[in-house]
């Protein structure tokens, strides 16, 4: 890669404008010496991330339809949407994997205690209101 080929294709919104996350590429200058050049990002990588993300959102949309049809609970929806898995969620909340899978069914979702709701919402980084809805 040559210095003038270092891509500057920014793909994603950064929540903290001070830190300014950047790649750093090692590229050859006109004398054949490696030079370090900060890079805002590269199209194919951004596309790969967006493709994976889009796929997740489609899966979540499918679960959303199931929630509306009464076949799944909002917890199942948020797990897919926020890239969570039962074992990892169990690690964050201390609620057993078995119980988490149970709460993915609508009739058991209604029986979650307030304490459990709080810790689930906290693990996701969302509010209890968001956790119990599918908007």
């Amino acid at each position: 890669m040559k210095v003038n080929e270092v891509p500057q294709e920014d793909g994603f919104y950064q929540p903290d404008s001070t830190v300014l996350l950047r790649d750093r590429n090692f590229a050859l200058d006109e004398n054949g010496k490696f030079t370090e050049v900060p890079s805002a990002g590269w199209g194919p990588k951004n596309d790969a991330i967006k493709f994976t993300w889009k796929n997740r959102m489609e899966e979540a949309e499918e679960i959303r339809r199931q929630v509306i049809a009464g076949k799944s609970s909002p917890l199942a929806y948020h797990m897919i949407k926020l890239q969570m898995t039962p074992p990892i969620l169990s690690g964050y909340t201390g609620i057993s994997k078995r119980k988490i899978k149970k709460f993915c069914k609508p009739k058991h979702f209604a029986s979650i205690g307030q304490g459990e709701l709080d810790s689930l919402a906290d693990a996701f980084g969302i509010s209890v209101e968001e956790l119990t809805s599918i908007d």
Binding site: F12, Q14, P15, D16, V19, L21, I88
Partner: peptide, 11 residues
Amino acid sequence: LAYFPKEYRIH
């Protein structure tokens, strides 16, 4: 990690 874009926040 609060300052990471949401697309980068994997496990």
